[in-house]
């Protein structure tokens, strides 16, 4: 079995209101060095075998929305 991790992030041009709230909360805890935070998601896929085209197709067809998101993935093991 192969583990693939897909990282999905909101496009940099779009306001991440949840990320902004997290940054503000970190400020309230005294972490003044925080200039921003952005929240994405990580999806771990467990595959019988790795196939680059297949993973790309999964991202394009369902896992990420190209209107608002970028993605990348890596084979873990």
């Amino acid at each position: 079995m192969v583990t693939v991790r897909v990282f999905i992030t909101l496009k940099p041009s779009l306001l991440d209101s949840a990320g902004r709230t997290v940054a503000e909360s970190l400020h309230k805890l005294g972490f003044d060095q925080v200039e921003g935070a952005r929240i994405g998601k990580m999806i771990e896929l467990h595959l019988r075998e790795f196939d680059d085209q297949g993973v790309k197709a999964m991202c394009d067809k369902l896992l990420a929305n190209p209107v608002i998101e970028d993605y990348r993935y890596e084979v873990v093991a």
Binding site: L10, L14, L15, D16, S17, A18, T21, N65, V67, I68
Partner: peptide, 15 residues
């Protein structure tokens, strides 16, 4: 999401 309309809907600006 089905591609029948343009754009997307994100979390409200003020959470």
């Amino acid at each position: 999401e089905a591609g029948l309309l343009p754009g997307a809907l994100l979390l409200n600006e003020k959470q």
